[in-house]
Amino acid sequence: MNPYSEIQKTFEIKNGIKMYNFEKCLRALQTLGNYHFGNRFKIYEEDLPVIRKLVIYAIRDTATMIQLDINPNKALLLSGPVGCGKTSMMFLLNYFCPPQSSYKIKPCREVAFEFAKKGYEALIPYTQKEHKQIKLSTYCFDDLGTEKQIKHFGNECNVMAEIILSRYDSFIHEKSLTHVTTNLSASELEAYYGDRVRSRMRQMFNLIAFDVQSKDKR
């Protein structure tokens, strides 16, 4: 299956503008979810308000974003309980994004392990621009808060706090975006990363949250 052919079914072009149909977007998400994650993947009715916001963000429907109090210039912080589908949804959502808005998904635990092996050199891909790039590559850091304080030859570092602070500077000056998924609440994020990081996150992210009672879909 060509996943992008499924996306082509979700819109019509009128006067040079893509006009998306949300029901067709849901069908595409279901088809792509089954393709990537198997037949157990299912979109639940109680999650539709969250999914609608995510799709509207991905297709860059700026007018509707503003109506829904989503800032088109900020990235996504997708929160919710364990197993509610945050990672799967961010993976599938990438298909809807135009090339300039696509992102790489990186588990936070992997970043921490990379630091343990290589030290601060491991943070370079996430905090410095590649050759001739105008801004940092866009990442979605998955499961923020599951990584631990890591040591490299005695040097302890809260790696994700360092990355967020570095990427905040690029967000301010070059409009670089950084998406995040997390199981943590706002107060838990502040307790884990400190008020300085939490303050930067308020400026960087649109908070979109699954219901805390959302069922475990694994």
Rank of each mutant, 00 (worst) to 15 (best):
N2W: 05
N2T: 09
Y4M: 14
E6A: 11
Q8T: 12
T10Q: 00
E12C: 10
I13A: 03
K14A: 09
I17N: 13
Y20E: 09
Y20S: 08
F22I: 02
F22M: 06
K24W: 08
K24I: 06
L26E: 03
L26K: 11
Y35L: 15
F37L: 13
F37A: 11
K42E: 14
Y44S: 11
E45L: 12
E46T: 14
E46F: 11
P49W: 04
V50H: 06
K53F: 01
V55E: 04
V55G: 09
I56W: 04
I59Q: 01
Q67K: 15
N71A: 11
L78V: 05
G80E: 03
G80H: 02
V82K: 08
C84D: 04
G85Q: 00
S88F: 12
S88P: 06
M89R: 01
M89D: 01
M90Q: 01
S102I: 13
Y103G: 02
K104F: 11
K104N: 11
P107V: 01
C108M: 05
R109H: 10
V111G: 00
V111I: 08
F113E: 15
E114R: 04
K117C: 09
K118N: 15
E121Q: 14
E130Y: 14
H131K: 15
Q133I: 05
K135L: 09
L136V: 05
T138N: 07
C140S: 06
F141S: 01
D142E: 04
D142W: 02
D143R: 07
K148A: 14
F153I: 10
F153E: 13
G154K: 06
E156A: 13
E156S: 14
C157G: 05
V159P: 07
M160L: 15
A161E: 15
I163G: 03
I163C: 00
I164M: 06
I164S: 01
R167M: 06
S170A: 14
H173M: 12
S176W: 03
R196Q: 14
V197S: 00
V197Q: 01
V197M: 03
R200I: 03
R202W: 09
R202Y: 13
Q203V: 12
N206D: 03
L207P: 10
A209K: 11
F210N: 02
F210C: 03
D211K: 07
D211S: 12
V212Y: 12
D216A: 08
